Amino acid sequence: MPLGTEDEVFDTWRFHEGRALDIKEPICLSVKPAGVALEFSHSMGIPIVNRRVVSLFERLGIEEEVQFVPVEVEGQSEPWFILNALQVIRCIDDARCEEVLYWRPEDGEPERVGEYRNVAGMKIDPTKVGDASIFRPWGWLVVLIVSERVKLAMEQEGITGIKFIEV
Protein backbone atom coordinates (compact mmCIF):
# COMPACT_ATOMS: atom_id res chain seq x y z
CA MET A 1 0.00 0.00 0.00
CA PRO A 2 1.66 3.27 -1.06
CA LEU A 3 1.85 5.80 1.76
CA GLY A 4 2.71 9.49 1.63
CA THR A 5 3.62 11.74 4.52
CA GLU A 6 1.82 11.22 7.83
CA ASP A 7 1.08 7.61 6.77
CA GLU A 8 -1.78 8.77 4.53
CA VAL A 9 -2.67 6.48 1.62
CA PHE A 10 -1.15 7.90 -1.56
CA ASP A 11 -3.51 8.64 -4.49
CA THR A 12 -2.40 5.93 -6.94
CA TRP A 13 -4.83 6.97 -9.70
CA ARG A 14 -2.52 9.86 -10.55
CA PHE A 15 -0.20 7.29 -12.14
CA HIS A 16 -2.86 6.25 -14.67
CA GLU A 17 -3.25 9.67 -16.30
CA GLY A 18 -0.37 9.45 -18.78
CA ARG A 19 1.44 12.59 -17.65
CA ALA A 20 4.55 13.45 -15.67
CA LEU A 21 3.84 14.16 -12.02
CA ASP A 22 5.53 16.56 -9.65
CA ILE A 23 5.81 14.46 -6.51
CA LYS A 24 7.00 16.40 -3.50
CA GLU A 25 6.21 14.07 -0.60
CA PRO A 26 8.15 10.83 -0.14
CA ILE A 27 6.31 7.65 -1.10
CA CYS A 28 6.81 4.60 1.08
CA LEU A 29 5.65 1.07 0.29
CA SER A 30 5.03 -1.57 2.90
CA VAL A 31 5.43 -5.18 1.88
CA LYS A 32 2.89 -7.72 3.12
CA PRO A 33 3.71 -10.54 3.25
CA ALA A 34 7.49 -10.27 3.11
CA GLY A 35 9.18 -12.41 0.49
CA VAL A 36 11.62 -12.40 -2.39
CA ALA A 37 11.80 -9.02 -4.13
CA LEU A 38 10.70 -9.09 -7.77
CA GLU A 39 12.28 -6.63 -10.19
CA PHE A 40 8.87 -5.77 -11.64
CA SER A 41 5.83 -5.81 -9.38
CA HIS A 42 2.57 -3.97 -8.78
CA SER A 43 1.19 -2.08 -5.82
CA MET A 44 -2.42 -0.95 -6.12
CA GLY A 45 -2.13 -1.26 -9.92
CA ILE A 46 1.05 0.80 -10.21
CA PRO A 47 4.23 -0.83 -11.55
CA ILE A 48 7.10 -0.85 -9.05
CA VAL A 49 10.52 -1.58 -10.56
CA ASN A 50 14.12 -1.78 -9.45
CA ARG A 51 17.20 -0.13 -10.93
CA ARG A 52 17.77 -2.91 -13.51
CA VAL A 53 14.46 -2.05 -15.21
CA VAL A 54 15.36 1.66 -15.24
CA SER A 55 18.76 0.85 -16.77
CA LEU A 56 17.16 -1.38 -19.41
CA PHE A 57 14.72 1.35 -20.44
CA GLU A 58 17.62 3.81 -20.68
CA ARG A 59 19.56 1.39 -22.91
CA LEU A 60 16.47 0.95 -25.11
CA GLY A 61 16.22 4.74 -25.43
CA ILE A 62 12.64 4.92 -24.15
CA GLU A 63 13.21 6.77 -20.88
CA GLU A 64 11.30 9.76 -22.36
CA GLU A 65 8.14 7.63 -22.45
CA VAL A 66 8.18 6.99 -18.71
CA GLN A 67 8.80 8.76 -15.44
CA PHE A 68 10.60 6.87 -12.70
CA VAL A 69 9.47 8.16 -9.31
CA PRO A 70 11.71 7.05 -6.42
CA VAL A 71 10.00 5.11 -3.62
CA GLU A 72 11.16 3.62 -0.37
CA VAL A 73 10.28 -0.05 -0.05
CA GLU A 74 10.06 -1.49 3.43
CA GLY A 75 12.94 -3.88 4.10
CA GLN A 76 14.86 -2.95 0.92
CA SER A 77 18.07 -0.93 0.82
CA GLU A 78 18.41 -0.69 -2.98
CA PRO A 79 16.55 1.97 -5.00
CA TRP A 80 13.01 1.28 -6.22
CA PHE A 81 10.80 3.31 -8.53
CA ILE A 82 7.20 3.74 -9.62
CA LEU A 83 7.07 3.36 -13.39
CA ASN A 84 4.72 6.10 -14.61
CA ALA A 85 3.82 5.64 -18.30
CA LEU A 86 3.57 9.07 -19.94
CA GLN A 87 1.25 8.17 -22.82
CA VAL A 88 -2.41 7.22 -23.03
CA ILE A 89 -3.43 6.07 -26.51
CA ARG A 90 -6.96 5.50 -27.82
CA CYS A 91 -6.34 2.11 -29.40
CA ILE A 92 -8.73 -0.56 -28.03
CA ASP A 93 -10.29 -2.51 -30.90
CA ASP A 94 -13.77 -3.15 -29.47
CA ALA A 95 -14.78 -5.52 -32.28
CA ARG A 96 -11.84 -7.87 -31.64
CA CYS A 97 -12.12 -7.95 -27.82
CA GLU A 98 -13.86 -10.92 -26.19
CA GLU A 99 -16.26 -8.60 -24.40
CA VAL A 100 -16.61 -4.85 -24.00
CA LEU A 101 -19.12 -3.34 -21.58
CA TYR A 102 -19.93 0.35 -21.33
CA TRP A 103 -21.45 2.37 -18.52
CA ARG A 104 -25.15 2.95 -19.25
CA PRO A 105 -27.55 5.54 -17.79
CA GLU A 106 -29.25 2.87 -15.67
CA ASP A 107 -25.92 2.04 -13.97
CA GLY A 108 -26.33 5.14 -11.81
CA GLU A 109 -23.10 6.92 -12.72
CA PRO A 110 -24.16 9.56 -15.28
CA GLU A 111 -20.67 11.07 -15.59
CA ARG A 112 -19.34 7.70 -16.82
CA VAL A 113 -22.00 6.88 -19.43
CA GLY A 114 -20.30 5.73 -22.64
CA GLU A 115 -16.99 4.91 -20.94
CA TYR A 116 -15.65 1.36 -20.66
CA ARG A 117 -17.04 -0.56 -17.70
CA ASN A 118 -15.14 -3.73 -18.49
CA VAL A 119 -12.83 -4.98 -21.23
CA ALA A 120 -12.21 -8.74 -21.40
CA GLY A 121 -9.76 -10.32 -23.82
CA MET A 122 -8.54 -6.89 -24.86
CA LYS A 123 -7.20 -6.39 -28.36
CA ILE A 124 -5.72 -3.18 -29.69
CA ASP A 125 -5.48 -1.67 -33.14
CA PRO A 126 -1.70 -1.49 -33.74
CA THR A 127 -2.15 1.17 -36.44
CA LYS A 128 -3.23 3.60 -33.70
CA VAL A 129 -0.17 2.96 -31.51
CA GLY A 130 2.51 4.35 -33.83
CA ASP A 131 6.02 3.89 -32.48
CA ALA A 132 5.05 3.98 -28.79
CA SER A 133 7.05 1.56 -26.66
CA ILE A 134 5.01 1.77 -23.45
CA PHE A 135 1.58 3.27 -22.74
CA ARG A 136 -1.84 2.80 -21.18
CA PRO A 137 -4.89 2.32 -23.42
CA TRP A 138 -7.43 5.14 -23.25
CA GLY A 139 -10.59 4.09 -21.44
CA TRP A 140 -9.01 1.10 -19.70
CA LEU A 141 -6.14 2.64 -17.77
CA VAL A 142 -5.59 -0.32 -15.45
CA VAL A 143 -3.50 -1.96 -18.19
CA LEU A 144 0.10 -1.20 -19.11
CA ILE A 145 1.09 -2.11 -22.68
CA VAL A 146 4.63 -2.51 -23.97
CA SER A 147 5.90 -3.06 -27.50
CA GLU A 148 7.26 -6.40 -28.66
CA ARG A 149 10.77 -4.90 -28.57
CA VAL A 150 10.39 -3.98 -24.87
CA LYS A 151 8.86 -7.37 -24.07
CA LEU A 152 11.73 -9.25 -25.70
CA ALA A 153 14.34 -7.05 -24.02
CA MET A 154 12.78 -7.61 -20.58
CA GLU A 155 12.65 -11.36 -21.17
CA GLN A 156 16.25 -11.48 -22.44
CA GLU A 157 17.39 -9.44 -19.45
CA GLY A 158 15.65 -11.96 -17.15
CA ILE A 159 13.56 -9.33 -15.34
CA THR A 160 11.63 -11.14 -12.62
CA GLY A 161 7.93 -10.64 -11.93
CA ILE A 162 6.80 -9.83 -15.48
CA LYS A 163 3.83 -11.42 -17.20
CA PHE A 164 2.85 -10.65 -20.77
CA ILE A 165 -0.46 -11.22 -22.54
CA GLU A 166 -0.68 -10.53 -26.26
CA VAL A 167 -3.12 -7.79 -27.15
Rank of each mutant, 00 (worst) to 15 (best):
V113N: 04
D11P: 14
P26Q: 05
E65I: 10
R104T: 15
I82W: 00
E148M: 12
T12D: 13
L86F: 03
P2E: 07
H16V: 03
E58A: 07
S147H: 11
I134E: 06
P110E: 06
S147N: 13
P33Q: 09
S133H: 15
V88S: 05
T127G: 09
A153Y: 11
V100K: 00
E166A: 05
E65P: 09
L21V: 06
S147M: 08
P126W: 02
A153D: 02
R51M: 13
A95L: 12
R14P: 06
F135V: 01
V167E: 08
W140V: 02
E166Y: 05
H42W: 02
I165T: 15
L83E: 05
M44H: 12
L101E: 15
E106Q: 12
S133Y: 04
E65H: 06
L144R: 11
E109S: 07
I159A: 07
I23H: 01
D94R: 04
R51L: 14
V129C: 10
S30P: 09
K32Q: 05
I46Q: 06
E155T: 10
N118R: 15
D22T: 10
E65C: 11
G4M: 03
V146N: 13
E39M: 09
E148R: 13
V54R: 05
A37G: 01
D107I: 08
S147P: 13
V31W: 09
S147I: 02
G114Q: 00
V150T: 11
I46N: 11
D22V: 07
K32R: 13
V71L: 00
V167M: 10
I165D: 14
V53P: 06
Y116K: 01
T160N: 09
N118D: 11
S55T: 15
E109W: 04
E148N: 10
V119F: 04
R104L: 15
K24R: 14
S147C: 09
N50V: 05
D94H: 04
E148I: 00
P126Y: 03
M1C: 13
I159P: 10
D11Q: 11
E111D: 04
G130V: 02
K163E: 14
F15P: 00
S43H: 07
K32A: 12
